[in-house]
Design a protein around this nucleic acid. Structure first.
Lengths: 360, 360
DNA sequence: TCGAAAAATGAAATCGGTTTCAGAGTGGGC
DNA sequence: GCCCACTCTGAAACCGATTTCATTTTTCGA
């Protein structure tokens, strides 16, 4: 917080109109051609006599000249902008990813167009098209739900795309894939739970039409199987990655007359929070009566009651890498089809207070 | 959720390069001049013979022509972009405001540049300059902390700015102000608390160098005074609008040997959450032992334990109005200095479960 | 000191639109 | 049948950079 409420040094700064100078102004003032000014400023490889360079630089400083990014974008091929598509910035998970994206892009001069789809396919399509119209250099898609149509469109326009947590079962259309390796985190979660003595589990999954939901669920089951617990013994309920969906799934689990599970693993933190809410409503104490584990590690998870044990996603890193790789791709020689990049980031278990040994 | 994991109709859609047609292509194909195409497309006031219009439109459809927004921005005066500056998108409050901004802008063809300052003044300055370079049509500043310098710079460049919750004690430099009227919400909160029987209060404020923090605090005290409770009886601790800051302020309040307050009003939800966290750590039950009221009504407030009673800000509306007014300002005849707009949005109390009668 | 190669710079085209200004059709009033 | 006023449309300038290509300077070896 080095910020401050600056008042422009007490003296009531008058708003004096700033005339935007163009490269032509600079050229005339410095007595050189626009081409020369351009070369000095945009680090061209053409050699410039030191005297000339200084002369130009002096005028630039004097006039406070800053090149018009729009004009630059038109003549150059690049706009130094990328579009970031998110289904809901309200979800802190995405917010943190975006921070990573921005931090990686800013130093390189990139600005972000933010697009919020609100889970609306048509809106997403609209956004994609406006991004194309604006000639963004690249697009980062952070959806849990992504339309393949967007990817083909983007690919057709030769716009590099980074997709996070993609469906590995279909061939990649994007140029950079950030895969999330849920294995280490989920394995640790299962070991943690089993170690605590749990034997009866339930899972609240994301929408099952999403590959990532199925992957998380299957991995959970596989790891449990390694400890002798059969998939058939695990009750799975489908959620929607939102709090309410998690809560409803929990309702279904508890309403089920069979013996209740002693531990529930939710496919994301929001749903885990929903599960805890429902547990509380039924006077089930977490973690004494029920252990809950989430996935994501959004900040509210650390401040819930009790603080949530969760499989942490490297949120910031995901964003940072997504942007870095995209820019790398962008920097590479334009010619032709670049080989798709693909990297994997690991998850890790964060143990807090929503897990404990089951009651006897 | 009308979204779906579209696979582009099973047939493995090949990525066929899409050639971007230009207005010249359209003109040639339609046998008219570029000027005519432009007029047809960008709703110029020049009359076009129906036959010509249709001919052009047909070609546009056939070629799938979409005008290059960059070129359009360069020649026209407008870019149809606005910059949104936020100190932290991780805070759901800002996220929801942004949704409002986007929803208002999208139908009018505006896209958003998102800037996250992370409370860093220099970073903010960098962002402001890049936005100017990119010739955004306007800027929306959602800070609690805003540098006046930015505003003068923006004003100097004649870029309309919308400021939310500005400091009314200094003359406006921006063209649109969205004021938040805390009065109704805070009054209702005080009446609620007093009605429950509370007599000993504490307040966790935001950073006191911020006018908005002082305003919230003073209003709380004024309303209490109306019920016969003197400012001197109210313990105030300064926070930082973050969870941890709220928690620390609570620590100070509890560590204070005097009689504890039975109700605490925090200047925002994040700090209220921090207060509840600290209360829990000290085995103080909320609301039995301590009533807590926040301000903002971010979603985690509704899902905390217990759910937080709070003074709700019209978050979405703030964003929507901020953008709407800005666009209105943009639409108005360019000539000269437009009169600054100013609107006020009211707050309102949302009673949940963090408040109850004090123990006897 | 001369000439050729290298270095530095400028003129002009280009990016893809919008807009001004002027010219070409059309139609109507007398 | 003529002239003027509209109604449409096109040519060209312009927005503010970058970049190619050509030209002017320098630099240097012989």
């Amino acid at each position: 917080m080095k910020d401050r409420e600056g008042r422009g040094s007490e003296l009531k700064q008058a708003i004096r109109p700033i005339k935007m100078s163009t490269i032509t102004d600079v050229a005339e003032e410095a007595g050189v051609s626009r081409a020369t000014v351009s070369r000095v400023l945009s680090g061209s490889d053409a050699p410039i006599r030191p005297a000339t360079r200084e002369k130009v630089l002096a005028v630039v400083a004097k006039l406070g000249f800053r090149p018009n990014a729009v004009a630059r974008s038109l003549s150059g091929k690049r706009t130094f902008t990328v579009g970031v598509l998110v289904s809901d910035i309200g979800n802190p998970f995405y917010a943190e990813v975006i921070k990573g994206v921005e931090d990686a892009g800013l130093p390189e001069g990139y600005n972000l167009f933010l697009g919020n789809t609100n889970f609306d396919l048509d809106r997403g399509t609209t956004l994609i098209h406006s991004l194309i119209d604006r000639r963004v250099d690249g697009v980062i898609i952070l959806f849990s739900r992504t339309s393949q149509e967007w990817l083909t469109t983007l690919a057709g326009h030769n716009i590099p795309v980074t997709v996070v947590d993609r469906d590995p079962s279909i061939p990649p259309l994007e140029s950079v894939s950030i895969n999330v390796d849920f294995r280490p985190g989920i394995r640790a979660a299962v070991e943690h739970l089993v170690g605590l003595g749990h034997r009866r589990f339930a899972h609240v999954s994301g929408p099952l039409d999403l590959q990532t939901s199925r992957r998380r669920r299957d991995m959970f089951m596989e790891e449990l199987a390694a400890h002798g617990i059969k998939p058939g013994q695990i009750q799975c309920e489908e959620g929607d990655f939102h709090i309410e969906g998690g809560r409803e799934a929990a309702r279904r689990i508890f309403d089920n007359n069979k013996t209740w599970p002693t531990a529930i693993f939710a496919a994301n933190d929001l749903m885990a929070l929903g599960v805890m809410g429902e547990a509380r409503a039924r006077d089930l104490r977490v973690p004494q009566d029920l252990s809950v584990i989430g996935l994501d590690d959004i900040w509210p998870a650390a401040h819930s009651t009790p603080p949530l044990t969760t499989v942490a996603m490297p949120r910031y890193k995901i964003g940072f890498q997504a942007m870095s790789r995209l820019m790398k791709q962008l920097k590479e020689a334009k010619p032709g089809r670049k080989t798709p990049q693909e990297i994997s980031l690991a998850t890790q278990l964060v143990i807090r207070e929503s897990t404990a040994p089951p009651r006897r």
